[in-house]
Amino acid sequence: MRKDLFNFGPALGYFFRKNDPARHTNFNLRTMHFINKLSMAMFLVALVVLLYRWFLR
């Protein structure tokens, strides 16, 4: 089994990284990153709900 299969470091780093002042940003890029973070958070909430229903019901 591959050890890097469940490596969530880069995904968690995406949520908690600091802004890089050298990187150019605009409204479209900020909106895209917000939508990506929102969709990942919604997926994780849905996954927790499904696991709760599967294990505790």
Results as ranks from 00 to 15, higher is better:
residue 42 M to H: 14
residue 11 A to F: 07
residue 8 F to S: 08
residue 38 L to Q: 13
residue 3 K to N: 09
residue 33 H to D: 08
residue 5 L to C: 02
residue 14 Y to C: 07
residue 12 L to Y: 07
residue 35 I to L: 07
residue 44 L to M: 13
residue 43 F to K: 04
residue 14 Y to V: 04
residue 47 L to P: 02
residue 11 A to D: 06
residue 49 V to Q: 00
residue 14 Y to G: 09
residue 53 R to D: 15
residue 24 H to F: 12
residue 22 A to D: 04
residue 36 N to C: 13
residue 8 F to L: 13
residue 12 L to K: 05
residue 46 A to Q: 10
residue 22 A to R: 08
residue 56 L to R: 00
residue 11 A to C: 03
residue 51 L to N: 08
residue 1 M to E: 10
residue 10 P to E: 00
residue 1 M to L: 14
residue 33 H to K: 07
residue 51 L to K: 00
residue 9 G to T: 14
residue 42 M to P: 07
residue 3 K to H: 08
residue 57 R to K: 06
residue 16 F to S: 02
residue 7 N to E: 07
residue 39 S to V: 04
residue 49 V to A: 04
residue 34 F to Q: 13
residue 14 Y to F: 15
residue 44 L to Y: 14
residue 8 F to R: 02
residue 4 D to F: 08
residue 32 M to V: 11
residue 2 R to I: 06
residue 52 Y to N: 10
residue 29 L to Y: 12
residue 18 K to W: 04
residue 39 S to A: 14
residue 51 L to M: 09
residue 31 T to I: 05
residue 47 L to A: 15
residue 4 D to A: 06
residue 21 P to Y: 04
residue 12 L to A: 05
residue 9 G to I: 13
residue 50 L to I: 12
residue 21 P to W: 00
residue 30 R to E: 03
residue 47 L to M: 11
residue 54 W to A: 15
residue 17 R to L: 06
residue 13 G to C: 07
residue 14 Y to R: 11
residue 7 N to S: 06
residue 13 G to K: 09
residue 50 L to E: 15
residue 9 G to C: 09
residue 39 S to R: 08
residue 3 K to R: 10
residue 55 F to A: 08
residue 45 V to R: 05
residue 27 F to A: 07
residue 32 M to N: 09
residue 27 F to I: 06
residue 52 Y to I: 13
residue 25 T to K: 08
residue 50 L to N: 12
residue 46 A to Y: 10
residue 4 D to H: 09
residue 46 A to I: 02
residue 5 L to I: 07
residue 47 L to C: 10
residue 19 N to A: 15
residue 50 L to P: 04
residue 35 I to A: 10
residue 12 L to N: 09
residue 27 F to W: 08
residue 26 N to G: 02
residue 30 R to Q: 03
residue 40 M to V: 09
residue 26 N to K: 00
residue 40 M to R: 10
residue 20 D to G: 01
residue 49 V to M: 02
residue 16 F to K: 02
residue 29 L to A: 09
residue 18 K to I: 02
residue 22 A to I: 00
residue 7 N to H: 07
residue 29 L to E: 15
residue 30 R to W: 03
